[in-house]
Design a binder for these strands. Sequence first.
DNA 1: TGTCCGATATCCT
DNA 2: GGATATCGGACAT
Length: 196
Amino acid sequence: MCLNRKFFLENADNVGKNLLGKYVLRREGKRVWGGKIVEVEAYLGRKDKAAHSYNGRRTKRTEIMFAGGGFVYMFFVYGVHWQLNFTAGKKGEGQAVLVRALEPVEQGLTLSGLQGATLYKAASGPGKVCRFLELDGDFYGENLSSSSKIWVENWSTKLKDGEIVSTKRVGIDYAGKWKDAVLRFYIKGSKSVSRK
DNA sequence: TGTCCGATATCCT
DNA sequence: GGATATCGGACAT
């Protein structure tokens, strides 16, 4: 079943944890592929110095963060990489969840001949997620639904607390006290997590 | 394990 | 016009 808007209306830390084990799917013509979400980070919006929406900053780029949960927020970093986020929370809050890593799926879905380490590392980082899913700025603002080119399927049972590892977020040294906030979550033991 | 650095969209002055 | 970025691959050590 495709996750609906309601799923994304909670705060980003809850949405992030709930997304672990769910499946991001992509469709391009007849080809359908995707992966299990195994690593995420939450950005809490206005109060969170690490978030692009910190202090309510609204620009062309951040605007979608304030639309409420359930939209795709794409942005570009380091001159090379796109990043996939899902907006979260209520309208005006500026919350989002960064999708940091996927385990590519094979069952009934097309995968282009990847196996072994190449397979489980194909989307083991936020930049690689976008390369694997063939996402770029054109997906900015996309509505997450099964009639779209990107959506999230709820194929798994809820994870137990013991299966989730929580840590600080990555690459946000500029964020003052917020750089130490425990808002990164990943599935314990997954080979596709970007770093231990 | 550590350092280096790409190549550009977006924001700021 | 200038600075910076929610990273990843390469190569040295």
